[in-house]
Amino acid sequence: MKKLVLITAFILGAVLFSETKAQEISENAIGLRVGGGGGYGAEVSYQRATSGNNRLEFDLGWRNDSYYDAIKIVGLYQWVWNIEGGFNWYAGVGAGLGNVDVPAKYDDRYPKDGLFALIAGDIGIEYSFDFPLLLSLDFRPEWGFNDYDVIDDFTPDVALGIRYQF
């Protein structure tokens, strides 16, 4: 009985180890994350692998809108799981800071300029090509916090990511 348990544990460990090696992620990736739906338009995005198949993602986003101008930086911790081959899915959590400016011509009752904070989740799918290109599609719900109605709410953000891996 002990031999059967030991052999089963060895086989299970070998299978899990080979699965882990098959789904390695790139050490670094940099590119653009282009979003919509209340998000920030374009973001410069950098990913850095940590232990195992986890990574950090940092995004610097901006929006020059007709109603407001804003800039934000978001940091996320992501867990990455392999689907098959170059396909992965990932989920993560993070936080960020930003600055918003609402011109007086849209609301002159009180200023809405200033800093805001946000917390975010992230879930998405990605494909890593045989050459150093990573394409992703993700959903990032964000909850902003400040004293203004512009940012103080839930914002769904769907984006396409295009990154160079190195």
Results as ranks from 00 to 15, higher is better:
140 R>W: 00
130 D>T: 08
24 E>L: 02
72 K>H: 11
55 R>M: 14
158 V>D: 01
26 S>W: 05
40 Y>V: 04
76 L>Q: 13
100 V>I: 14
92 G>N: 08
100 V>Y: 02
108 D>E: 09
128 S>C: 02
94 G>H: 05
148 Y>I: 04
74 V>W: 05
149 D>F: 00
125 I>H: 10
120 A>T: 14
154 F>M: 01
73 I>L: 14
128 S>E: 13
133 L>Q: 07
150 V>T: 13
93 V>W: 04
49 A>I: 03
153 D>A: 05
78 Q>A: 03
33 R>P: 00
30 I>G: 06
131 F>R: 02
119 I>T: 15
86 G>M: 08
88 N>Q: 15
48 R>K: 14
66 S>A: 11
28 N>P: 00
65 D>R: 07
68 Y>D: 06
65 D>W: 10
125 I>Q: 07
72 K>R: 15
47 Q>N: 14
125 I>E: 04
107 D>F: 15
156 P>R: 05
54 N>L: 06
67 Y>N: 14
140 R>M: 09
103 P>V: 06
159 A>M: 03
58 F>P: 00
28 N>H: 15
148 Y>S: 14
67 Y>K: 12
63 R>Y: 14
92 G>W: 07
156 P>G: 03
127 Y>C: 01
152 D>W: 02
102 V>W: 07
75 G>M: 04
124 G>Y: 10
59 D>F: 13
57 E>M: 08
25 I>C: 05
117 A>E: 08
70 A>C: 04
94 G>D: 05
78 Q>R: 14
90 Y>G: 08
115 L>T: 13
159 A>I: 03
130 D>N: 12
46 Y>I: 09
144 G>F: 04
151 I>G: 01
39 G>E: 02
139 F>W: 12
37 G>K: 04
52 G>M: 07
128 S>W: 01
68 Y>R: 02
158 V>Y: 12
142 E>A: 05
110 Y>P: 01
131 F>P: 00
143 W>Y: 15
39 G>R: 02
61 G>T: 04
115 L>D: 10
103 P>W: 12
153 D>P: 00
89 W>N: 09
154 F>D: 00
101 D>N: 15
61 G>F: 10
40 Y>H: 06
26 S>T: 08
152 D>L: 03
61 G>I: 08
118 L>S: 04
110 Y>S: 12
154 F>Q: 00
43 E>S: 15
149 D>K: 01
120 A>C: 08
106 Y>M: 04
128 S>M: 07
61 G>W: 06
43 E>R: 12
